[in-house]
């Protein structure tokens, strides 16, 4: 494919045209990220009266801190669970729309949760799952399960995973529906004539042809689980009980804004940034190459 190249006579104009975008990136990304990197080498008392340069001590402390290592493990479990649950359910619902229920109302209802603000969604789930007054524990008690996410780490983890995936299912659903509709109907018909039943068609034709969509959603969902789930966790468990739902991004907030250990908090956010860069590079280098046709 040939890309069109524009040649500017004036050498200032191209920079002027780039300026707004560069300014936005500068002010909202490079500057704060740079501040975080600088801050991660400093140690400051809670009142901001004394600041000292400590080199890598903030990082060293982190990797000897069992709480931090715990948060790392929690994040891995949490992210994988959110990605699997929201991708899986999104795909199942999209297939249902593509095959069975073609009404617009049904699709609209599934998309709704995406329009709900994360914090509001979190509060909603907090009410529904509240061990004292919630409807979910009530129903679970009927089948003999004593739900209490305030005491049980497992319950708490399931709770934040479900509450975080809920919104993301809508997003994944939209993309999967579009992906499914982009697969020509004649391919499935050809496969039907070639003797493949519905289940076999799904796994040998539909799933491979959806893989570019799935890959894109995997990246988006991983980044979502790592960063954007803060409001949900804050509104539901606040990282408790026993830090069993404290993810890396929630710990950044706790250490920085509650405990006022700004140096450690900055070091954590730098590590988080590196993790995301690494993940994205891995996904694009190794996974994407295998999903393009």
């Amino acid at each position: 494919m040939q890309t069109k190249r524009t040649v500017f006579g004036n050498c200032v104009l191209p920079y002027l045209l780039l300026l707004p975008q560069l300014a936005v990136t500068m002010v909202f990304f490079i500057w704060p990220a740079g501040q975080a990197v600088w801050q991660s080498f400093l140690q400051q008392d809670p009142f901001g009266l004394r600041t000292s340069f400590v080199w890598f001590r903030n990082y060293e402390r982190l990797f000897h801190d069992p709480n931090y290592l715990n948060a790392l493990g929690v994040t891995v479990v949490f992210s994988i669970s959110v990605a699997v649950l929201s991708l899986g359910l999104g795909l199942i619902l999209a297939v249902a729309v593509d095959r069975l229920v073609k009404t617009r109302l049904y699709s609209a209802l599934i998309v709704w949760p995406y329009a709900v603000a994360p914090a509001v969604g979190g509060v909603l789930w907090w009410f529904m799952a509240n061990p004292t007054i919630g409807v979910v524990p009530y129903l679970l008690r009927l089948v003999g399960y004593d739900w209490n996410h305030a005491l049980s780490p497992t319950d708490a983890m399931i709770f934040v995973v479900v509450a975080s995936s809920w919104k993301q299912i809508s997003y994944n659903f939209l993309f999967f529906v579009a992906g499914l509709q982009a697969i020509p109907g004649s391919l499935r018909e050809a496969a039907a004539i070639d003797g493949a039943g519905p289940v076999k068609r799904f796994f040998t034709i539909t799933v491979p042809l959806l893989s570019p969509t799935s890959f894109f959603l995997l990246v988006v969902n991983t980044v979502y689980a790592l960063f954007d789930t803060f409001p949900v966790i804050d509104a539901t468990t606040k990282g408790n009980p026993q830090q069993s739902t404290t993810t890396l991004v929630y710990k950044v907030y706790q250490d920085g804004f509650i405990a006022l250990d700004l140096g450690s908090s900055a070091a954590q956010s730098v590590i988080l940034m590196l993790i995301v860069v690494l993940l994205t590079v891995v996904q694009f280098r190794w996974v994407e190459r295998r999903v393009q046709y």
């Binding site: 004649s186 018909e189 039907a192 004539i193 003797g195 039943g197 034709i205």
Partner: peptide
């Protein structure tokens, strides 16, 4: 009968080759 059970083969307008 299902398409597969009819013992026919079809050539489609857009060929419908499996791209993967």
């Amino acid at each position: 009968l299902e398409p597969a059970e009819r013992d026919i083969a079809m050539v489609f307008q857009n060929y419908a080759l499996y791209p993967h």
